[in-house]
Amino acid sequence: MSSSTSTSVPPVSTSTTDSTTQQQQQQPAFPKILKNDPARTGFDPKTSWWINYFKILTGSVTPEGQFHYRESRYRANEEKDCKRCDEFRDWAFNYSPTVIFLRDKIEKLNGRLDENNVVCRRCPARLTEDGEVHRQAGGFSPEHGILICANEVRDRKHLEDTLSHEMVHAWDHLRYKVDWLGQKDLKHAACAEIRASMLSGECRWTRETFTRGNFTLTEQFQDCVRKRAVQSVLARPSCKNDVEAVKVVNQVWDSCFSDTRPFDEVYR
């Protein structure tokens, strides 16, 4: 449903107790979200940003603290980031061939996407005790429209790819009524994510090479689509683990990777 990424910082040791009930032990254990502790991380939000930045440069702030510093700067720059994102969005609706094409196809299915339901907002990231940083670039909701995470937009082309990804989701929903959360069948979500990553342009060779540092030519496009689809399926609440996510993506891969509708072919 959304374009998301995760990075890692060293996990933080936490203490546990043995006073859990049998029912709690049977439930999946979701990693705890970490909040900043200046004594542990070296980042103090009450101190001027430039002092914290200097501390980062001198190695006085842990990777966890650097994460919290990054989020604090996003909060401080929220208005500026959203204004910039709005400008990029308006450009895409007026000049991007992919976005214009998808908007027209969505309108033919009695849907509508414009500045009223394609919104730019700051999206807080989450750092969990296992050391994983969870971010997203955007998201689609059948009830509300498309969210673009203004603080994660790198440039105009990045927004174009993110918006195209979510617009493919919108087209799929109008055409097929996708089970986005995978409550009935995770294959719906897997197929939708394969198609969105394949058709949006986010896995084209230039982005993988110069943005993500992937210089492998052979099967690069397929590997990127598969990897991003697995990550997105894994984020569904009904997905048990990465093994299940890979299995479901593999089950629908051949049919969904060959489905380029509403395009005639993959050209981005």
Results as ranks from 00 to 15, higher is better:
E202P: 00
H158D: 15
V9S: 09
F93T: 00
Q231A: 14
Y95R: 05
R122N: 07
P63F: 05
I148K: 03
V168E: 13
S96T: 09
T128M: 07
C191F: 06
D179Y: 07
R126Y: 13
C224V: 04
R126N: 12
K157V: 12
N250Q: 14
A170D: 07
C123I: 04
Q27M: 13
N116K: 10
K46R: 03
R261C: 02
E71C: 09
L217D: 00
M167A: 03
T47C: 06
L159E: 08
V153Q: 07
T216M: 14
D259G: 02
N151G: 04
E78A: 15
C239F: 08
G131N: 05
S96C: 10
G145S: 05
S238L: 01
V249M: 02
R135E: 15
I33G: 03
R154T: 07
R121S: 14
T98V: 08
D44I: 05
Y74A: 15
K240G: 04
P63D: 05
S72L: 02
T128R: 10
I51H: 07
L163Y: 07
A245L: 10
R268D: 12
S60D: 06
G138N: 04
A125N: 08
S96Y: 10
C120P: 04
R122F: 06
D114P: 02
H68G: 06
S238D: 03
N151S: 09
C149F: 04
F215C: 02
P142F: 09
R228F: 15
Y74P: 05
D37T: 12
S13Q: 10
D81F: 10
E143Y: 13
D18M: 13
K55S: 03
T14C: 06
G65F: 09
V168P: 13
D254V: 14
M1V: 12
K247G: 00
A170T: 09
F30S: 12
M167R: 03
R75N: 15
H68W: 14
G213K: 08
A235Q: 08
I51R: 12
R212C: 01
W253I: 01
H173V: 04
D37H: 11
K105L: 05
Q220P: 00
R156A: 12
H134E: 08
D172P: 00
D254F: 11
D179T: 06
R261P: 00
T206K: 09
Q136F: 11
G213A: 09
T47W: 07
C203M: 00
V119E: 05
D104L: 02
E107Q: 13
K46F: 00
L109R: 11
R236K: 10
S3I: 15
Y267R: 13
I148C: 11
G111W: 03
V249W: 02
P11S: 01
G139K: 09
S6V: 14
N214V: 10
K83G: 07
Q251A: 07
K240W: 08
G65R: 06
T209R: 14
